[in-house]
Amino acid sequence: MNFEKIRNMAVGLAVMVALAFTVSTGPVSAEMKKKEFKVVGTWSFLDHWKEREGPFWKERLPKLSGGKLTANAKSQTELGLSGFEIMRLLKLGVFDAVHGVTTYVAQDSPAIEGADLAGVIQDLGLYRKANEAYRDILAREFEEKYGAKLLMIYAWPSQQLFCNLGDKSIKSYPLSKLKGKKIRTYSTTLGDFIEGVGGSAVTIAFAEVVPALQKGVADCGLTGILPAY
């Protein structure tokens, strides 16, 4: 079944308490001190962790530093912590670096969600412009709320709407028909979007979305392409 896309690009954020090191491809400095960074990545079932975040901290960083810089890097899935819990632990110094999604870490700072307003960003070109314009605000929020430095921003898969309509012959489903539907969302901005088209936003943990759709607790669920897969 083809569902109408809501192209809401999630923003991946990497933040660190301090820019404590510089890695180059040249010879390792004899003065470089050994350090093991405590790192939290995103979800273990996503390519972001398997192909980028995990390999960088576990393989590339030690290799480029001659083994002097290493990391105890674990995925958010393995730790079982929510986004805002991870950010609070970052502030306390429990972690040195974390990767996260704006909508999952914005509980203590609603301004962070401004980088990812549902329905506004429709393609990667606009996504880049929006985040270039908003980067200083994000950097300020992370600095003031968590004492952290924003290091990078990268794109996540577009969000799609998955519904259990009870009829597999349906090939398209306009937003106008979402009126009255119970729809799982995971952020304030997505909730506002769904309420705006007449739906009822409900909060359901990611692991419970499929059972909720099967049991009729929710009619639809919003999530990214890769997590849904």
Rank of each mutant, 00 (worst) to 15 (best):
M1N: 10
K5P: 01
R7A: 04
N8H: 15
M9C: 07
V11D: 05
V17K: 08
L19Y: 00
A20V: 00
T25L: 13
P27R: 08
V28P: 00
E31C: 09
E31T: 13
E36W: 00
K38D: 03
V40N: 01
F45Q: 01
D47M: 04
K50Q: 04
E53D: 09
P55L: 09
E59I: 07
P62I: 12
K63G: 06
K68H: 06
T70L: 03
S75P: 00
Q76F: 01
L81I: 05
I86E: 12
K91G: 04
L92W: 03
L92N: 14
F95H: 02
D96Q: 05
H99T: 13
T102C: 13
T102L: 15
V105N: 15
A106F: 11
P110I: 06
G114P: 01
A115P: 02
L124R: 04
G125R: 02
Y127F: 14
L138R: 11
E141M: 09
L150D: 01
L151R: 12
W156S: 09
S158D: 07
Q159S: 13
Q160N: 13
C163Q: 05
N164I: 12
N164C: 07
G166V: 06
Y173H: 15
S176F: 03
S176L: 05
K179E: 12
G180T: 11
T185Q: 05
T185Y: 06
D192A: 10
F193K: 13
G199V: 08
A201W: 01
E208I: 00
V209Y: 01
V210T: 12
A212L: 07
Q214I: 09
K215G: 05
V217F: 03
A218Q: 01
T223F: 14
I225H: 02
L226E: 06
P227M: 11
